[in-house]
Design a protein around this nucleic acid. Structure first.
Lengths: 223, 223
DNA sequence: CTAATAGTGTCTCTGAGACACTATCTA
DNA sequence: TAGATAGTGTCTCAGAGACACTATTAG
């Protein structure tokens, strides 16, 4: 690759905000930093962008390093460029948001990271860099996407009950919805369909299982 | 600044999509490239990010180089990172969108650019790089912002008539609205208020002038 | 008084939201 | 048959959209 004609001394990296729902709480994957700065503090999993990969590729690669995931949703959020966001050197970082269903997720252990752990968004530890700001931005975007698209399918298993679907909305948007109105609204949008199967585990009346009709993200006014 | 520990050979730049309305058409400022690649072709005005400025600062600086503007709106859109988007070397570019009212705008001549010119979005010339894609993304974002926020104030003069306001919506969203329903809707949102002044230029019945109530961008369901 | 744009009210229909009971299953 | 969750229908009210005439001004 030709040498560029301007000297820049800026590091380009990617930060991942990985969302899932565990124990009826919206959670984010954080890693404990084994090195300075912010040694032993928690931070978002991140990666340096190599010369021959796009930002998306870096983000996806880093996601795979830490998790075993199929059917993952990845979306670019925003590029953060404050001069002093990294105390060591000038770093510009593009934040990505990922959505993972609990079922499709296993956290890989890796010697590069002392520890990876999911934290509820309501109980985040102290974070290094500007990662608090990044997470706030990501939560805002996630809420918006949930309200206006069929993105919920990426937090749910492939087949799910109406109650599970409503839980996703109630947990992420942090509000209660009336059961009848919620079902009426979802049904009117034709974004999910019957699988004609039922739950098996339930001690009581088993619920019907549904799946999303369209696996592409489409704009729908859900709530 | 400490030397970063990873060798990256990536150029960081900024591309500006500058919107305004001229002659009842939505237009974008393009510059004619005096150098290769894409010599003499039109492209978005762009700038290289210096080590000690944020992306926002670069975008703003470049905007000021080309235009004399007060009261400008600037918003980060997306960061484009395809490996071969610049044929010379690896370039990652963050796109910004700017909104300018015709009244607040004068295009500066600059010897760095052979020529700057506004083009209607419906009649854009052949563009270098991935600038067509960037513009399409910017138009989508602009439409969304117009529908759901009070951003229209940045394309309008400070005081404007109801007809001018409706024109902005009709031109950008490319659809007609009923005069009565449009006014009813806008009035119900309390985002504009009377100035108790009237147009003077009009040959016929002069219209009342309004101004926006709130100069911050707020989420409002306009259309 | 003519020509041209500014400005206004009503009706219908759709959809959001409030609200409570019956159905189905297991043990 | 008890216990627990699944599942459903109606009414009201707000707001979107269709639609046509009067008001004001300059010349």
């Amino acid at each position: 690759m030709t040498k560029k004609w301007v000297e820049q001394n800026i590091l380009i990296s990617v930060d991942n905000v990985i969302f899932t729902i565990i124990n009826d709480k919206l959670q984010i994957l954080l890693v404990s930093r084994p090195i300075e700065p912010f040694k032993w503090q928690w931070s978002l999993p991140w990666g340096v962008v190599w010369d021959k990969e796009t930002l998306e590729e870096t983000a996806y690669k880093k996601l795979e390093e830490k998790t075993s995931v199929k059917n993952i949703y990845l979306e670019q959020l925003y590029t953060f460029s404050n001069i002093r966001r990294d105390p060591r050197w000038r770093t510009i970082s593009t934040a990505y948001m990922a959505l993972v269903s609990r079922e499709n997720l296993t956290i890989k252990s890796s010697k590069a990271w002392r520890e990876s752990k999911f934290f509820p968004v309501t109980a985040l530890p102290k974070l290094g860099f500007d990662h608090k700001e990044i997470i706030e931005y990501a939560i805002k975007r996630l809420k918006w996407k949930l309200e206006y698209t069929n993105i919920a399918q990426y937090i749910l298993p492939e087949k799910f009950t109406f109650t599970q679907l409503q839980n996703v909305y109630e947990i992420v948007l942090n509000q209660k919805f009336d059961v009848r109105n919620f079902r009426k609204k979802i049904n009117s949008l034709w974004i999910i369909e019957e699988t004609w199967e039922k739950e098996v585990w339930n001690q009581y009346r088993p619920a019907r299982l549904f799946k999303f009709t369209n696996n592409n993200i489409e704009i729908v006014d859900v709530i």
